[in-house]
Structure formats: C-alpha cells, structure tokens
Design a protein around this nucleic acid. Structure first.
Length: 435
RNA sequence: GGCUCUAUCGUCUAACGGUUAGGACGAAUCCUUCUCAAGGAUUAAAUCGCGGUUCGAUUCCGCGUAGAGUCACCA
C-alpha cells in the first residue's frame, strides 16, 4: 500500500449531470490530479427504481466531453457481494441487526430491514473546508443501512466502497455534511479508517437555492449543445467557490490542476453567474487557433452562408458558437448574400440633403469603379472612401449612406468590410440602387 | 422547528490584526468611430447589526439577524 491520494466522484444516475454536480466532480478530480493521485468514478445505482441507464450514459458522456478522466470506474451495484459481506460481519459482531418491520409503502408486507446499532455518541470530524464539525448522533436512532441483506442502502454502500477503493479524501457537496457522522459510525463498525472529508459549499441558482434539475439547472449536455467550450466550463465552474488568489482568471485545464488548492475553497455557497460563464467562454475562444475558430463558425453557419470571409466579423460578436446561428437566424448576416431592401429616407445622414447624399454616392461609385476587381480589398476600399469622406463636412454624410445602401441595416459592420466581402460588382450595384 | 454550516460591491471574489478595502463579470460614461461589435480609459458599487478583546478588527470572540443545507425502506 502507498499513501497515494485517492478521490472519487459518486453520482447517482437519477438525473442529468448539471453544473452543480459537475463542480463537485471537478474539485475531486483537480485535487487528485494536483497530488498525482487517482480519481475514481463510481455510479451509485443501488436505488434500482430511480437509477436509469440513460442518466449513467449522460454522466459518462458529459464527463468525457468536459475532459475529466478517471482512473477507475464501476457501478455500486457490481459490489453487492462486498456490501453483503460487511453487512453479515456487522450483524455477527452485533453492530447491526435484522429488524422485521412492516413495509412503509402501505402494502403491509413484513420486511427484514437491517438497522445499525447506534452507540449514541458525539461524532466529530475535521473537515478540510469547514473545520471541526461536531454532531450528536443520538437522535438518528438505529438507522437503516439495508433494505435487506442483499439490498444495501446509501450509507453502508458508500462506506464499504470508499474503503475498498482506498479513498483517502472524500470531496463532496455540503448536502452530505449531515450524513458524515452516520458514515463515520459505520466505518468504526467495519474497521475502516475515516478518510479526510471536504464538504464543498453548494452552487446556488439565481433563486439562491441549491442548483438542481428540478429548479431548471441546465444539464452539462445543454451547454455542449449551445456551443460552449469544455475548457471554459471547467474554468468557469471551478471558479465558483474557489479561486487561486491572483488576478489571473483564465485558466486552462492543466493550469487549473497546477493551481488547485482545497484550502482556498470558499465556505459559503455561491450563486452561479451565467454572464460570467459567457465571458469565460469568449476568453477561451480567443485562445483557440485561427483555423479552429474558422472551422467552428463555418460549421454553425447555415449551408448558404458558409463564407470564410465572414469569420472575423462574426467572431468578435459572439461568446459561444450557437450565437453564430442566432445571428444568422436573426437576419444579421443576410445582406452579405442578398441585396437588402432599402428605405431611401434612411440614407439621410443627420441634416444632409438628399441631393447631397446622392451626389456623394455618385462620386464614391465613380471612384470605386477605378479599383480593379482583384484589388477590391477592405484596405483599398477604405483608403478610397476615407479620402472622399475627409473632403466632406463630416465623414458620416458619405459613410452612413454607403453603409446603409450596402447593408440596409441600422446596425452593421463597417462599409469597407461589407464591400470587400460582397465584391466590386455587387457593391456598385447596391450603390446604384441607392442613388 | 431540531441539527450543521455560512455572512466583503447586484454577482464571483482578494486583502500576516495596520491597505485610499483590490480584481473580474455586469452597469454607466468617455475615447476610437457613419452605426454595431471589438479595443482603450474612467466612474458608480461592499466589509449584516450590536457588544467584547486589542494601540488598532473585514479579519479573533459572543450575541442577534439573515441565508443555505439537512432531517427517507433516495443518494
């Protein structure tokens, strides 16, 4: 045996993996990796009625997508023989007993529950985050640890499995704090050492209540669908309730492992901020190589709009890939592909007369005409137009009507980039229509 | 309600017992600009309350108050 650190993430497959649960996984993972230890993934499926394969799949897929890898994987249900072994041992030794009771479901069936013989003592443990936590266990009574000898319940299964897996640090949500004394009692009964506990403050939703699927917490899979970057989620979620101390906030997966420190975990619950996640995502997108950015934006663009020239314009206006689709759907890109409908009144810039606008456009058209089709780049168009615009009372009386003539929109990228993308012929043709 | 835990800008947070209480998101303003976006600059915004310890408290202690979690034959 070595003193290697082992942590675990033990979700029950009774719902989709959401950000709150995910953060628990991250902290256990980061802590293990930071200390060159092992990270165990255990699916807690002892509740046969509520556990579903699709949820297990979802958890596995989500973790994989997020880049959280584990060194060991198993389902709790595969360990029932071990649970049974300890159950029998405890019964033999008198720390547990079989209790014949009427089922609570109203059927009146007599069942052989296994109850833990509560020694009724004070239990204290040193929590890595909370400090010393003391609890009296007398009011817990002889709590049930198995539905019968073959069907272990949570507390027994957790203790046995953590013991068997050699888990040294149990990093889990604060909602488990009050379960800890019971589990420590069981550890004593089966001769298992008490691991080090670290109970994480919960992640709260905008309603200040524990994040849960019931209350509309988005599943990790949803963030994937929305085109978030897994590393941004890792970064953003790791930063709720924890931070490495400095002013640097954008961390990659590897940097996070290096920086992680349990002692800097916050003690109070934190409200999750979606806007900041968007920001994290944008920052991580900026870290991507250009080709990767282009590839993704093109993928999210509708079939008829996959123009690489649009990439820079789109990129500075999005914070996640699905924004690309949103922009396209909102018609913000249409004018790059089709001449817009123009409302001539909107051509007017401030108090400039229609005649003046018209003559400006005519002059600009003539000048643009002199640029060859091959040289119709953003720089050349800009140089040409700015030169004219500078000679006017204000640049706006030329640039505004041109931009509007080209885009038909109140808000759009600048006219130079639009012109260079739609090309010389189309630019001239749209200008012509506006004169 | 019992038990456990927590308390710094709206949100996430930083600050050996000594700081003009710092940063980020968001917001606002300005610059850049024909508009939008991006970029740059700036501003507003917090130590829950009351006591105590101390020369000195965001920091330590107590009491309030507020919030969270948990009280299953779920996990």
């Amino acid at each position: 045996m070595s003193d290697k650190i082992v942590t675990r993430f033990a979700p029950s497959p009774t719902g989709l993996l959401h950000l709150g649960t995910y953060r628990t996984a991250i902290f256990a993972y980061l802590f293990a990796k930071k200390n060159k230890g092992a990270f165990v993934l255990r699916i807690e499926d002892t509740d046969k009625a509520r556990s579903k394969k699709e949820y297990e799949d979802n958890i596995l897929e989500s973790l994989k997508w997020l880049g959280v890898s584990y060194d060991k994987f198993y389902r709790q249900s595969e360990h029932v023989d071990k649970h049974k072994f300890y159950l029998e041992k405890m019964i033999k030794e008198g720390s547990a007993y079989i209790s014949k009771e009427e089922a609570k479901d109203g059927t009146g069936v007599i069942k052989e529950l296994v109850r833990f013989k509560n020694p009724n003592i004070d239990v204290a443990f040193q929590d890595e985050i909370k400090g010393e936590v003391k609890m009296n266990t007398t009011d817990l009574g002889d709590f049930i640890i198995a539905k019968n000898i073959n069907e272990p319940l949570f507390h027994l299964a957790v203790v046995v499995d953590d013991f068997e897996a050699g888990v040294t640090h149990i990093i889990r949500g604060e909602d488990h704090t009050s379960n800890t004394p019971r589990q420590i009692l069981i550890q004593g009964a089966i001769g298992a050492p008490t691991p080090i506990y670290a109970h994480l403050p919960l992640v709260l939703g905008a309603d200040k209540l524990k994040l849960s699927k019931r209350r509309g917490a988005l599943a990790v899979a949803e963030y994937k669908k929305l085109g978030f970057l897994p590393e941004a989620i890792l970064n953003g979620v790791a930063f709720v309730g924890w931070n490495p101390g400095g002013e640097k906030e954008v961390y990659t997966h590897d940097e996070l492992i290096k920086a992680f420190d349990l002692s800097r975990v916050q003690k109070s619950p934190a409200i999750f901020n979606e806007q900041k996640l968007d920001w994290f995502n944008k920052e991580h997108m900026k870290l991507l190589p250009k080709v990767e950015i282009e590839k993704n934006i093109l993928e999210w663009l509708p079939e008829n709009m996959k123009n690489p020239k649009l990439v820079p314009i789109i990129f500075e206006r999005i914070s996640k890939w699905s924004d690309v689709k949103t922009m396209a759907m909102a018609g913000e890109l249409g004018f790059f592909f089709k001449a817009p409908e123009i409302n001539k009144e909107k051509l007017i810039y401030k108090k400039t007369t229609p005649e003046k606008i018209s003559s400006n456009l005519k002059f600009a058209s003539k000048e643009l005409e002199t640029i060859s089709e091959n040289d119709f780049t953003m720089e050349n168009v800009k140089n040409c137009l700015i030169l004219i615009a500078e000679s006017l009372e204000s640049r706006g009386e030329l640039l505004h009507p041109i931009r509007y003539a080209l885009s038909g929109a109140d808000k759009s990228p600048d006219p130079f980039i639009i012109a260079s993308i739609i090309g010389k012929n189309e630019t001239l043709s749209r200008l012509q229509k506006a004169i």
